[in-house]
Simulated assay, not measured.
Amino acid sequence: MSQTAPVTPGPTTPGPVTPGPVTIRRPSPLVEIARRAAASRNFVIGGVLTLLFLGIAATSLFWTPLDPTRMSIRTRLQGPSDLNLLGTDQFGRDILSMIMTGAQNSILVGVVAVGIGLSLGTALGCLAAARRGWIEELVMRFSDFAFAFPALLSAVMITALLGPGAVNSILAIGIFNVPVFARVTRGAALAIWSREYVMAARLSGKGTVRITLHHVLPNIMSIIIVQATIQFALAILAEAGLSYLGLGTQPPTPSWGRMLNEAQTFIYMAPQLAIIPGLAIVFTVLGLNLLGDGLRDVLDPKLRRAR
C-alpha cells in the first residue's frame, strides 16, 4: 500500500486588514481653556497685574512694614529709605503700608458692590427675559433711567444724602451696577430662550424657574463673569473718586483716593505722594480691564476669531 506523504503547510497569505474605527482624542474642556488662556496676551498680563494687586491686599491682612495710621512729624515728607521704602507723607505715615492697606479697602468695596449689582441685576435680567411684557418694559425703563446719570454722579448724590462712609459708598456703587447686569443678562438670556433645547424643555413640562436655572444661567455665566470683572475695575475707580471727594472711606482708614486728595497740596514739594497712589489705581484698573478682555477671548473664542 502506498503511503501518502504528509503535506507541510506553507505560509498562509494574510487577507486584507479591515481598519478599525479611528478614535480621535479631543482635549478636555479645561485643557482647551488653559491653552486659550496661555495664548491670550491680555489674559496673561491682566492676570499677573490682578494677582499682584490681590497679593498685596492679602498680605496687608496680617503684615505691613509699619502701622499705616502711625504718625511721626519728625519724619514727615521724607524720601525712600531703609525704614520707609516709598517714603512718608505729610504726617510721617509710611506710604507703602498705606498703599497695601488701601488695596484691601478697594477690594472690599469692589467685591461687595459688584456682588450687590450682580445678584440683583442678574435676577432682574432673567426675570425680564423669561416673563417679557410689562415686566421687561419696567426693568428696561428703570435701567434707562439709571443710565441717564453717570456712575460717579449717582454715587455722589447717594452718599451726599446718606452721609459719607465706606458702607454708603458700597451701596451707591452697588445700586448703579444693578441696571448694568440687568441689561447684559436680559440680552444674553433672550438669545438662549429662543434655542431649540429650551423649547424642548418647555414642551417636556419644565417651569420657567427650572429652565432658567438649568439651561439659561449656565449658558450665559461666561458673559456675566466677564462683565463682573469690568465692573470690579469701575467700582475701584468709583471708590477712589468718592474718597477723593471726601465721601468714601473715612480717616484713619487708608484709601487711595484720599491719599490723592491729601497729596495735591504737596504736589511740587513731594510729587511721590500723588504719583504712587495714582499708579496703584492705574495698574489695578488696567489689570482688571485686560483680564476681562482676556476672559472674553478665553470663554468665547468666536469673538476672538471675529476680531
Rank of each mutant, 00 (worst) to 15 (best):
L54N: 03
P68C: 13
D89L: 02
G115F: 07
T50V: 14
A37K: 01
I56K: 06
M71D: 13
S97R: 07
G87V: 05
V31H: 00
I45G: 07
N84H: 15
G46Y: 02
S60K: 06
L120R: 09
T88I: 07
V111M: 09
I99L: 15
A103K: 01
P27Q: 07
L83S: 12
R25H: 12
R26D: 10
N42C: 05
M71H: 13
A113N: 08
I33R: 15
A103T: 10
S106G: 06
D89F: 02
L85S: 11
D94E: 00
P65T: 07
G55A: 08
L118T: 14
S97K: 02
I73Y: 15
G87H: 05
G110K: 06
I45T: 05
V111L: 13
G115E: 10
S28P: 04
F91N: 13
G55K: 07
A113V: 03
P65L: 07
R70Q: 15
T59A: 14
L61N: 10
L96R: 06
R76M: 12
I33M: 14
S72I: 01
L66H: 15
T59M: 14
P80M: 09
S60F: 02
I45R: 03
I24G: 00
R93H: 11
T69W: 06
P29I: 02
G117N: 09
G87F: 05
L51V: 13
G117Y: 12
M71K: 13
S60L: 01
V114H: 05
S40D: 06
A57C: 08
S119F: 15
I95Q: 04
F53D: 09
L54K: 07
D67E: 13
V44S: 05
P68T: 13
L54W: 06
A39D: 11
N84Y: 12
P29Y: 04
A37H: 00
N42K: 14
P68H: 12
S28I: 03
T64Q: 05
I107V: 15
S28M: 03
G117I: 03
L120G: 06
L61D: 10
V44E: 01
S119N: 10
V112C: 04
F53S: 10
E32G: 09
T23I: 12
W63D: 08
S28T: 08
R35Q: 12
V48W: 15
T69S: 14
P65K: 11
I95A: 07
T101F: 11
W63H: 04
S97E: 05
A57S: 08
D89H: 08
A34F: 07
F62V: 15
G117L: 08
D89Q: 04
P80F: 06
